[in-house]
Design a protein around this nucleic acid. Structure first.
Length: 416
RNA sequence: GGACAAGUGGGUGAGUGGCUGAAACCACAUCCCUGCUAAGGAUGCGUAGGGGUAACCCUACCGAGAGUUCGAAUCUCUCCUUGUCCA
């Protein structure tokens, strides 16, 4: 959630920044107005309540002194009705405000480039050179089927389209990649955490998936439980409502989970293969820092993800997302795109975001800054999406006969 | 799944209707004192929101929500969590 105080105080600059991200000015003006109205309603209610409390105190004194209370009671009773009304108004205002505020995205950082969509993202650098082939490189689904690694039909049989089943070396490679990535992250100081794959509504509100993106989530029927779309949700919400001692910061976590996404609105995109699945494996990084340290942490996380690809000898590039492509909760995002020879293009394999205090405000994650409690900054990033890493390995290391060379760093994990 | 019990501030823990935002102790912070030795003393110490230049004042919060009452940590109901016993 954005800082309503800041919006109130500095409407011009906050709204200008949000307009860059495509937020309607009228909506922001409405938000500001609602905020004022709520404040008014609160002051009104609290004044009445204070009056009521004072009278109730008198009551005690009257009783002790044996005085007649009927006149006082009449006054108190009358006030009660007024209070109830004032409280109702306050509640309605509160609800109206929240409905708007929870749907406003994060304020983009000043150095985020303007743009409409992914075409306007800005490349930071390329790492490693894409391989050249003296034959026509195949796409991963062809290689996956030819090697017997992945069966897409079996996924359909069990669940439906956009599910797949891995076999033999395909399944082993998944497991090897997860282990390799977790160990890699651990070496960089990230504590491995194993979390539930189901979370409640509060957690999803905390990280910003709800209320706005309910259609992308799988919900358990009749229960307040959702399948997680990313480990970012449970990892970040581990600290929901917590006041973290200053010396515990920064907190660096890594975790592997399956991720579940309905992919609503993605119809027709990447329907073949395993680029876009309803269920996929991902190793995630989540960090919690003081505000002044989050930029440094952000760079560190980008490097961590990039270095994993380098260790796997996979060519990739780093791009800064433009305002139009930036996610709901992110102030800044760097995507890592891996080279896919079969598709002859770079495709997203990791996304690292600094949400600043956007999630912290929603999830009430704070730290003690000397005497005061301050909101922390939360960051998250994939390191990496396992399925897409498999795709990259297949396409980059394919031989003319369809065989695939396994990257050396994975050999120990595969008993090779 | 059933029965019973419990859920209070960083921790332990008191508190069964008003003088309790909450005793006491511990921890913590600042200051003071001191050669009789892991000492003593003073003060401070929850969170969120709002008002005031400020001293300060107001509102809410004792697992969550609803209710009774002029007034609830304290009574009632529902839910959640934990513990113990049973299946």
């Amino acid at each position: 959630m954005i800082d309503l105080k800041l919006l109130q105080k500095d409407f011009e600059s906050v709204s200008a920044k949000l307009i860059r991200k495509g937020v309607d000015l009228a909506l922001l003006e409405q938000l500001k107005e609602k905020n004022e109205e709520l404040k008014q309603a609160k002051v009104n209610f609290e004044t009445l309540q204070a009056h009521q409390n004072a009278m109730s105190k008198e009551f005690g004194i009257y009783k002790r002194e044996g005085k007649d209370i009927s006149e006082l009671k009449a006054r108190v009773d009358a006030n009660k009705i007024v209070i109830a009304e004032a409280l109702d108004i306050q509640r309605i205002k509160q609800e109206e405000l929240e409905n708007i505020a929870m749907a406003i995205p994060n304020i983009p950082d000043d150095d985020v480039p303007d743009g409409e969509d992914e075409d306007d993202n800005v490349e930071i650098k390329k790492v490693l050179t894409p391989p050249s082939f003296d034959f026509e490189p195949k796409e991963h689904w062809e290689l996956a089927e030819q090697n017997g690694w992945i069966d897409f039909e079996d996924g359909v049989k069990l669940a439906g389209s956009r599910f797949s089943v891995s076999y033999g070396m395909g399944a082993k490679l998944e497991r090897a990649l997860i282990n390799f990535m977790l160990n890699f992250n651990a070496q960089r100081g990230y504590t491995e955490v194993s979390v539930p794959h189901l979370v409640n509504k509060r957690a999803l509100e905390g990280t910003g998936q709800l209320p706005k993106f309910a259609d992308d989530l799988y919900k358990m029927q009749g229960l307040d439980l959702y399948l997680i779309p990313t480990a970012e949700v449970p990892l970040t919400n581990l600290f929901q409502d917590e006041i973290i001692p200053e010396d515990k910061l920064p907190i660096k976590m890594t975790g592997y989970t399956s991720c579940f996404r309905k992919e609503a609105g993605a119809a027709g995109r990447d329907t073949r293969g395993m680029i876009r699945q309803h269920q996929f494996h991902k190793v995630e990084l989540v960090s919690i820092t003081k505000p002044q340290e989050s930029d440094k942490m952000f760079d560190e996380m980008v490097s961590c993800a990039s270095d994993i690809l380098t260790a796997l000898k996979l060519p990739h590039r780093l791009v800064t997302l433009c305002t139009g492509d930036l996610g709901f909760g992110a102030a800044k995002t760097v995507d890592i795109e891996v080279w896919l020879p079969g598709q002859n293009c770079y495709r997203e394999i990791s996304s690292i975001s600094n949400t600043r205090d956007f999630q912290a405000r929603r999830a009430k994650i704070r730290y003690k800054d000397g005497k005061k409690n301050n909101l922390v900054n939360t960051l998250n990033g994939s390191s990496l999406a396992v399925g897409r890493t498999m795709v990259a390995i297949m396409e980059n290391f394919q031989q003319e006969n369809g065989d695939i060379k396994i990257p050396e760093v994975l050999h120990p994990y595969l008993g090779m």
